[in-house]
């Protein structure tokens, strides 16, 4: 099942990529191939990958005709947690510049450690606060790396 989904996605992607390649305006001056030729080859490469995948799917089906279809993509309970972590990280990225590195990171870390290292509030908050202050100070003041300042004035 999974492989069939990948197969369909590959074909769709190839279609989109061929279309996007056709949109590139090209001026063939001194370059016999232009900017489109290599991408076109890659589009063909995607189709080859799809064909190889189809061959693998058919071969696997032949092998395990009687066996139950264990290869199914199922949404399980733990996938919700991954989705939630991804959403929390997206919120962090969205607030990174408006709030600044220190504040956004602190909120992000407190949320995740509070959930995944449950019950140890003192340890979590101390680690998060120290990490944020030390990393900000060492990267911006010592290494000269620019990190978003946000609403904090220093």
């Amino acid at each position: 099942m999974t492989d069939r989904i990948i197969f369909v996605c590959t074909l769709l992607l190839a279609g989109v990529y061929f279309w996007a390649t056709a949109q590139i305006p090209s001026l063939e001056l001194g370059d016999p191939l232009g900017p489109k030729a290599f991408p076109r080859m890659l589009g063909v490469g995607l189709l080859i990958a799809a064909a190889m995948l189809l061959a693998e799917i058919l071969r696997a089906r032949k092998k395990a005709q009687s066996a139950s279809d264990s290869d199914t993509l199922r949404w399980e309970k733990q996938h919700w947690i991954v989705a939630a972590v991804a959403a929390w990280t997206a919120l962090y990225v969205a607030l990174f510049e408006p709030l600044g590195y220190m504040l956004a990171t602190l909120i992000f870390l407190l949320g995740l450690t509070g959930y995944f290292n449950r019950g140890r509030h003192l340890m979590n908050s101390l680690t998060c606060v120290l990490f944020v202050i030390i990393s900000y100070a060492s990267f911006t003041k010592i290494l000269g790396v620019n990190l978003a300042r946000g609403i904090i004035p220093f």
Partner: peptide
């Protein structure tokens, strides 16, 4: 590990933001 993994995300964010100072790079990491 409940502390370690969140810190890795923060370290990755610093490294990525340091390249161009652009949030686009943080979105790409995600």
């Amino acid at each position: 590990q409940g502390i370690l993994y969140p810190l890795i995300v923060a370290i990755s964010a610093i490294g990525a933001y340091a390249i161009n100072g652009s949030v686009i790079d943080l979105w790409l990491i995600l």
